[in-house]
Design a protein around this nucleic acid. Structure first.
Length: 545
DNA sequence: CTGACGACTTGGAGTAAGAGAC
DNA sequence: GTCTCTTACTCCAAGTCGTCAG
């Protein structure tokens, strides 16, 4: 693999800090205090977040204050000893005013900024890989700021330091001096162009190509081909894990029950995490006793398992499902003599599970089940929900519902948008108005018909036609609005993006569009069409996952 | 086997852009 | 043309999974 990445060395970085104008003051204990630029910069990070819940959280404040003090001069350090005595409100006002000013910019100013962004993209947003010009995914190095961990993250509020050239490892050929970087290498076994080590968790961050690139597209395609291979042998695997529920060995039973959950509930694998370094979240293998409740009987159903835990991004997973008796009995066995904080599957981890899966099918890992179950669900749901003589908006609603079924399976949730209630109300108002319009149009049609019946002339006939068309048009508009309202309501707390982007074989969607003559733009926006170009190219209307 | 590390995918929030209403 | 609301897109955190050393 030849790699010729043309990356500019200066503009990839965050712009250096520009001190605030003197009129923007910081107060400590009621008294004005001029901060040194480094201390002021970090203070602005906090000031920008004053309206965010983060700034009220104890851990956030504590971590911020500790790191902020490190940036202070010794004089500042000795004076500023209590965050509660700090008044950042002028800074906060200043930034609000700035963003307000940005919104108020004239058309011309906005056009200039847009042009400048486009120029930056053209200049720094591309590289050449294997003789192809490719879009880079994230060509801007992350700017300094306060770490915003999700959930109860012990490190939230810590200072993410500024990245300089000497922190960066370059992994491509580039046209700039060699000696300013941490290292320059040419490793063509990996796909990244540049990397640095981030100071909060000590993990490595990368500059990689855009999803539309060949290298990402091929990987994506492979992922779905692996899931399709699982489809071919999933019956065999299911028979096997059901069999393993009866195994003499505890580790095999645990493995088999965990796999059943991963398959049936689309749970994530659940790697172990370092305690105290991140939020306390779990996946299947890392489930603890406290995360499940067993109910031999619950509302007419037997053998119900109740799950309640925080998964990736501290999103709550809550589900009650009836399981087979054998699974239930096994779970009771796994729980014996354990404390709430003990591992449910104490003889299992993701490495053991994946080794086992690898033996069952080449390339099989826990996450393949998620991909497989998501894609097969979409295919089934589309088949079930689509009616050929439906209108296009009704078909799109069916598509979104199929997509939604997958999002629910994968537990892709979102906070209801802040403006949700209002926007539903607006839509309802429109519907009401449209309904009034419709009844008026219907009355007019009726009148026109009566008129025609009386006169039988050409002119009145034409009027009837015109009115009939008007009614039809308004009916369509009303239906469209109603469909939109249904769709939005059903989608209140569900995030469709992740499944669409990462779990659904795009060829299923492309085939569906072709079969029902739906323009592809109705389901994929520009970025998504670019990412799925390979599938749009490849799939015909008869494609089966 | 265990833990650390490295590379890559997956994830929701936030915001900028721009489409549609007026 | 301007304002408002929605959608697209960016951002970067947080997972998965393989490898390697001890």
């Amino acid at each position: 693999m030849q790699r010729l990445g043309d990356i500019c060395c200066l503009w990839m970085f965050a712009p250096s800090y520009e001190p605030l104008p003197d009129k923007v003051k910081f107060f400590y204990d009621g008294k004005h205090m001029k901060l040194s630029p480094p201390a002021e910069e970090v203070a602005t990070f906090f000031a920008k977040m004053l309206d965010h819940e983060y700034s009220t959280k104890d851990i956030f404040r504590k971590n911020f204050f500790k790191d902020w003090r490190k940036e202070m001069t010794s004089e500042e350090k000795s004076k500023i000893t209590d965050l509660n005595k700090c008044n950042f409100s002028q800074m906060n006002d200043y930034f609000k005013a700035q963003s307000e000013a940005r919104k108020q910019m004239t058309k011309e100013e906005k056009r200039k900024i847009k042009e400048e962004n486009e120029r930056l993209l053209q200049e720094y947003g591309f590289c050449i890989m294997d003789n192809h010009k490719e879009r880079i995914g994230n060509f801007r190095i992350e700017p300094p700021g306060l770490f915003r961990g999700r959930g109860d993250h012990p490190k939230m509020g810590m200072l993410k330091r500024r990245i300089r050239p000497e922190d960066i490892i370059i992994n491509c050929i580039f046209f700039s001096p060699n000696d300013i970087w941490k290292e320059v290498r040419h490793d063509n076994k990996v796909t990244w162009l540049a990397s640095w080590t981030e100071n909060i968790q000590g993990s490595i961050k990368y500059i990689m190509l855009n999803p539309s690139s060949r290298i990402k597209g091929e990987k994506d395609w492979q992922k779905y081909e692996t899931a399709r291979r699982l489809k071919k042998c999933v019956d065999r695997l299911r028979t096997q894990y059901r069999d393993d529920w009866k195994s003499k060995e505890m580790r095999i039973r645990q493995r088999a029950v965990a796999l059943y959950f991963i398959d049936k509930l689309a749970l994530r694998a659940g790697n172990e995490k370092e305690e105290g370094e991140t939020a306390d979240t779990v996946g299947c293998c890392s489930l603890r006793v406290e995360h499940i409740q067993l109910y031999p009987k619950m509302d007419e159903q037997e053998f119900v398992v109740e799950f309640d835990f925080l998964g990736k991004d501290s999103i709550r997973y809550y589900n009650k499902i009836p399981v087979e008796k054998r699974v239930f009995k096994n779970l009771q066995l796994f729980l014996e003599n354990k404390q709430p904080e003990d591992d449910l599957f104490d003889r299992l981890n993701t490495s053991i599970l994946n080794k086992h899966l690898q033996e069952l099918m080449d390339g099989l890992t826990a996450k393949v089940f998620r991909t497989y179950n998501a894609s097969i669900t979409l295919q089934q749901q589309l088949k079930e929900l689509t009616t050929s003589d439906d209108s296009i908006p009704a078909k799109i609603l069916s598509y979104n519902r199929a997509n939604r079924a997958v999002a629910i399976l994968c537990n892709h949730q979102r906070a209801p948008p802040k403006t949700f209630e209002k926007s539903m109300q607006n839509l309802q108002t429109k519907i009401d108005e449209k309904q009034i319009q419709l009844s008026t149009a219907r009355k007019q049609l009726k009148a026109a018909k009566a008129d025609h019946k009386a006169s039988h002339d050409d002119k009145s006939k034409k009027t009837v036609e015109v009115k009939r068309k008007a009614v039809q048009r308004i009916e369509e508009q009303l239906m469209k609005l109603q469909v939109q309202a249904t769709d939005r309501e059903e989608n209140k707390q569900i995030a469709l993006g992740t499944s669409k982007l990462n779990y659904l074989d795009p060829r299923i969607s492309v085939a569906w569009c072709k079969k029902y003559a739906i323009p592809i733009e109705k389901i994929y926006n520009k970025t998504q069409r670019e990412k799925f170009a390979w599938a749009i190219d490849m799939a015909e209307k008869d494609y089966v996952f």
